[in-house]
Design a protein around this nucleic acid. Sequence first.
DNA 1: AACTATCGGATAGTGTCGCTGTCTATAGCG
DNA 2: CGCTATAGACAGCGACACTATCCGATAGTT
Lengths: 207, 207
Amino acid sequence: MKMAQLSSASGVPVATIKYYLREGLLQPGQRSGPNQSLYGPEHLRRLRVIRGLLDVGGLSVAAAHQVIDAIDSDLGLAHTFDIAQRTVSPQLERTALAPDALAQVDDVLDGWLVSPDNPGRLAAARVLQTFRELGQPDLSGWVPAYAAAALAVADADLDEIDARADRESKTEMVVIGTVLGDALFAALRRAAQEHVTAERYAAPPAP
Amino acid sequence: MKMAQLSSASGVPVATIKYYLREGLLQPGQRSGPNQSLYGPEHLRRLRVIRGLLDVGGLSVAAAHQVIDAIDSDLGLAHTFDIAQRTVSPQLERTALAPDALAQVDDVLDGWLVSPDNPGRLAAARVLQTFRELGQPDLSGWVPAYAAAALAVADADLDEIDARADRESKTEMVVIGTVLGDALFAALRRAAQEHVTAERYAAPPAP
DNA sequence: AACTATCGGATAGTGTCGCTGTCTATAGCG
DNA sequence: CGCTATAGACAGCGACACTATCCGATAGTT
């Protein structure tokens, strides 16, 4: 497959593919001459992964690069998870967070095996800190429901990863699932919000 | 409160506050002279809301503007939800989505009262379409778990909104909850992933 | 062999975004 | 009186994700 075909098959402009090659997001094709390269189906697939991470997952090119490197490198499952999580999470210093916001998170994470520097723990603390700054410290009916739902989803994530056969496929699901899972849940939450709102407040249909 | 105090109390630079004023994100203070204005606690609070939407929620300034206008305008709950959802969701054309991806979503949304143009429904279809393009059409063990979790979270969202006393407070929770709820869930999912991974694959602790 | 389209590679330019810095003419304040 | 602060206008900046242009060489067509 040549550049033009790769471009039309993926829907990505040639100039953009060249840009991805420059940035190292996409592997160079197989050289067939001093100024010719051939691309295979794996390039097409990689291009689709890239567009998914950028467009659907909302990642920056730099973040997509890190995440793709994690797919390619042969690390353990837990380590790959860690890289994917750190890449898609905001960089937070544990010391920059209010202790009571952290305590509020830990309260809800009671019994979980989570490292103190887990990016999710810190990001959750920041969200709760924001609510506190807005004068809404009591979310004891709300946050635990999120934690329970997150646990169920994480279980499903691991089930889905287990269902993959080979290591490469598992790794890819870790990375893509981490990124696209956020988008999927957010989307389904919107649909569920409309449903629950309709169910609670709309006039019941005539019999 | 004068500009300098508003700045130091909120931690937002004066130049940035001026920028927010220019953009209409923040209401002008009460004029006390041709080149003097006074700001009240409501400006400080609004500034905190803005920073929460931008930094924690990851919204653009334009999106934050729309969302803040939704807080201020006196619309019904369902309508406010709609504005908040459309603002934070990608703009998708229903016709640009693959019918089988949409069918896959509707399959999992079975029995829900959701309009065909619900932004969440369309966004979910796009995520599933991306998985399909990567050759993973069978996610029948995965997506339903997300839907169930989203339903539970949406229920908690509505409970929390119901718990607010006045209309203004409800509206604010709709908007802020929509934006920060995404961030909160994503964060807790990361923590839960580490927990489940540790629980499943780590050596059990010695007795 | 001539010719045209395409290629890889390098470099420069574009548009958007979220600020940030500078300027001017006032005004408050000690 | 003099110093600092302020509102408002406007230009500039750095990051980002492309996009466009040019070059010399080669591939495929005739």
